[in-house]
């Protein structure tokens, strides 16, 4: 007993230092891996960048036979599907979250909450197969003919809905993606809505606010930065989603304004073509695509951070 008390503090301090080093190492490792991944992809894609320069980003060619590669179509497909998915998923997710926190009877909250969380646990390949076998035929038979008949003839918006209704294309992929990211946004939104102080809400009710006014003037402004964070979490997932998109996007290197036409995304192109990319330039172009996906994701997340900082400055609060 007697020798251990003086020994304990020194070994405790050593353990503290070791623990500090281990956690710092883990944190630095993330940065190292991130930097390493970016650098190795840039290095792997150097052949493509050397051969095509900036044209790699602006060219819509993707021709393995004549060795011409351009990333415009996959970049467009990736951004278009992700943005449409967000347009679909954000209102639905916020609606679900509000229903769960404010409107639903107490006994209903747990089952719906669990169901939404289960949705997040479904592997993406299952979404892809569901999209291909169930959802795409439904779109082809019921939704797309109606869209091209009613919206197709309209002047500007019509170009978005032309083409044969085959059920496979940008719109179907976007909706499947939207469904996939709903649980992510919903889960975060529900938690932050729950964190709004009851006193604030009660005060708004006492002033005679309607539900809509509570949402738009109390809940959303109070939780704005967290909701934006949740949206970008969903966007990050949508940008990199591979399997589900591959199944329903059509995997065609075509640039078309119509949402009913097939397109390609960066992740889908890599998954589809890597195994048989037998020339060095072809393989390098695919790695360069991966690098571009990295850059796109990085830019999107940086934009999100910037937006959060600006909101934090104007509202004096960052969470």
């Amino acid at each position: 007993m007697s020798p251990s008390p003086p020994a304990a503090p020194t070994s405790g301090a050593g353990a503290d230092r070791l623990f500090g080093l281990v956690t710092a190492g883990a944190a630095w490792l993330v940065l190292l891996v991130l930097g390493g991944a970016a650098a190795s992809m840039a290095w792997g894609g150097r052949l493509a960048f050397e051969a095509f320069g900036l044209g790699f980003i602006t060219s819509r060619d993707w021709d393995a036979v004549s060795g011409k590669f351009g990333a415009l179509v996959p970049i467009y497909g990736t951004l278009a599907t992700s943005i449409i998915a967000l347009v679909i998923a954000v209102p639905v997710s916020i609606g679900i979250a509000l229903f769960l926190t404010d409107i639903a009877p107490r006994w209903l909250r747990a089952p719906i909450g669990t169901a939404v969380e289960l949705l997040a646990a479904i592997p993406s390949i299952i979404y892809g197969m569901w999209g291909l076998f169930v959802f795409a035929p439904f779109m082809a038979a019921h939704v797309e003919p109606w869209l091209s008949d009613t919206l197709g003839p309209l002047p500007v918006i019509g170009t978005l809905f032309t083409g044969p209704p085959i059920g496979i294309g940008l719109l179907t992929a976007s909706i499947v993606l939207g469904i996939m990211i709903i649980p992510f946004i919903t889960a975060v939104a529900r938690d932050v809505f729950n964190a709004v102080p009851t006193s604030l809400r009660e005060a708004a009710v006492a002033l005679g606010s309607t539900r809509w006014e509570i949402l738009s003037r109390v809940t959303l402004p109070y939780t704005r930065s967290a909701i934006i964070g949740a949206i970008f979490l969903g966007l990050g997932r949508a940008l990199g989603e591979t399997m589900a998109v591959t199944f329903v996007l059509g995997n065609a290197h075509d640039l078309s304004a119509s949402l009913l036409m097939p397109s390609n995304s960066i992740a889908a192109a890599i998954a589809n073509e890597f195994t048989e990319a037998d020339s060095d330039l072809y393989r390098s172009s695919l790695i360069a695509l991966a690098f571009l996906l990295f850059v796109v994701t990085f830019l999107v997340l940086a934009a999100a951070k910037l937006m959060l900082m600006r909101i934090g400055r104007t509202h004096g609060r960052t969470h």
């Binding site: 021709d63 085959i166 097939p262 048989e276």
Partner: peptide
Amino acid sequence: PGEGKTVSWPTGVGGKGNEGVANYVKQI
């Protein structure tokens, strides 16, 4: 377009693997 293991297709949708093409054809 020429010949190759993958070519620049002038038209159409792409399915992954024989299964992918067979499923697209069955469904479209």
